[in-house]
């Protein structure tokens, strides 16, 4: 939901170098059915936390929908899921 400016700020503060996309109108958040209506500050709509691992064919190979907003996907689990995907020859 953050604008590219806010995300840019976060990236430079946190040292993130991966592609960081903004969805200020929650279009993709809605398409992925992740909109948390009134879940943000002052009852604004935000995204619920969720993680998807998508393989080269565009197929979802691993997902994580947390049951508690404080608990997020573990880096170890995400790495293991990524390693389980066979490398496609190209």
């Amino acid at each position: 939901m953050d604008t590219p400016e806010v995300s840019s700020n976060l990236c430079s503060k946190s040292g993130y170098t991966f592609p960081f996309l903004s969805d200020p109108k929650a279009e993709v958040i809605r398409r992925y059915d992740l909109l948390h209506v009134g879940g943000g500050p002052e009852k604004t709509d935000i995204s619920r936390p969720a993680e998807f691992l998508v393989d080269a064919t565009g197929t979802v190979r691993w997902v994580n929908f947390t049951e508690d907003i404080r608990l997020r996907a573990k880096s170890d689990d995400m790495l293991a899921a990524a390693k389980a995907i066979p490398q496609i020859q190209n």
């Binding site: 998508v54 907003i69 990524a82």
Partner: peptide
């Protein structure tokens, strides 16, 4: 020059 095996999409609550 290889395409990545996968892409990890992380949706978060904003900041």
């Amino acid at each position: 020059g290889k395409a990545p095996k996968a892409v990890l999409l992380v949706f978060y609550r904003g900041y």
